[in-house]
Amino acid sequence: MELEPYVSILKRGESEFIEKKSHFLGHALRVSVEDEAFGFIEEIRDFFKDATHNVYAYKLKNGIMRYSDDGEPSGTAGLPVLDVINNMGIVDVVVVVTRYFGGILLGRGGLARAYSRAARDSLIQGQIVTYTPFYVVSLTFDYPVLGKLDNYLMGKVHVIDKIYTDRIEYKLYLRKGTEDAVFSDTVDITSGRCIIDIQGETYLPVSEGKLII
């Protein structure tokens, strides 16, 4: 199956605020399967077991999505959290919002706004990125073209390893879709004396066009 870009978060995100004496805490985590989502939900429930509510929603890139109001009025908690996830275009993520009731009713609209805010803030804190397909490439070439090839590759690839023997081997990440031009230019620079081996594909996080490693 061909890898396609998708938007998710880079790290665990947390948020916290008080609304009319109710204490809201948002927790967001990138996941890839439902078991990971359930595990995170149970982790938060166990840690905040004295909370009034632990509302959750999650969505996977295969289209699976679920939510729970956890005792809040129907449609005021879990669904607003899921709506935030959908509106931000994020997948492979689970969000749990913990609420400690402060004694003042917020009303249906107030609840929806508070749960939405907690979800949005925790996702933003998790750093929204685009997981982008990259090739894992081995590039072998001769010493005389090292400087020229380094200058060319700068900004086009991310080198993850360099091996120096009788020839030089670079192991690198190359963004999918740029390979034709990079490979063609590399062959020209090395006068055809290079070995290019695509060893696999992987997802890497990209933000504002820059690879995050």
Rank of each mutant, 00 (worst) to 15 (best):
V93K: 04
Q125S: 06
Y58V: 03
H158C: 10
V31S: 02
G39T: 03
I90E: 11
F101Q: 10
Y58E: 01
V145Y: 09
G78M: 01
R113M: 03
A118N: 04
I18F: 01
K20L: 08
V182D: 00
S22R: 14
G110V: 03
T178F: 03
Y170Q: 01
L172F: 12
I64M: 13
L79C: 08
K61R: 15
P133S: 07
D46H: 15
V33F: 03
E19W: 06
H27L: 09
S184H: 05
K148P: 05
L10H: 08
D35N: 07
P5L: 08
A181G: 00
L149W: 05
L79E: 15
T140I: 03
V96L: 05
K176V: 13
V81T: 04
E14H: 12
V33I: 08
V31C: 00
T178L: 01
I195D: 15
G89E: 15
F183C: 00
I41Q: 09
T190W: 14
D69C: 03
T202E: 14
G209A: 00
L146C: 04
E14D: 13
Q199F: 12
Y115A: 04
L82I: 07
I213Q: 00
L60Y: 09
L123Q: 01
R117V: 10
E34F: 00
G75K: 05
L105M: 12
Q125D: 12
A181R: 00
R167M: 12
S191W: 11
H23R: 15
V206K: 09
N54G: 04
L29C: 06
A37Y: 07
N87T: 09
Y67G: 02
L146M: 11
P5T: 09
I41S: 03
E43T: 11
L111Q: 05
L123E: 08
T165S: 15
E201Y: 12
Y6F: 15
K162I: 14
S116T: 06
D92L: 13
L25Q: 08
F24S: 09
G75H: 05
E14Y: 14
Y131D: 10
M88F: 15
G109Y: 00
M154E: 09
D197V: 10
V94L: 02
P133W: 14
I196T: 13
E42H: 05
I85K: 02
P80H: 09
R175E: 08
E19C: 11
K210G: 00
G89Q: 15
G13T: 05
F101I: 05
I163K: 15
Q127L: 15
D35F: 04
D35S: 07
M154A: 10
L82A: 02
K20I: 07
G107T: 01
P73I: 01
G126I: 05
V31R: 02
L106N: 00
D46R: 11
K171R: 11
V95T: 03
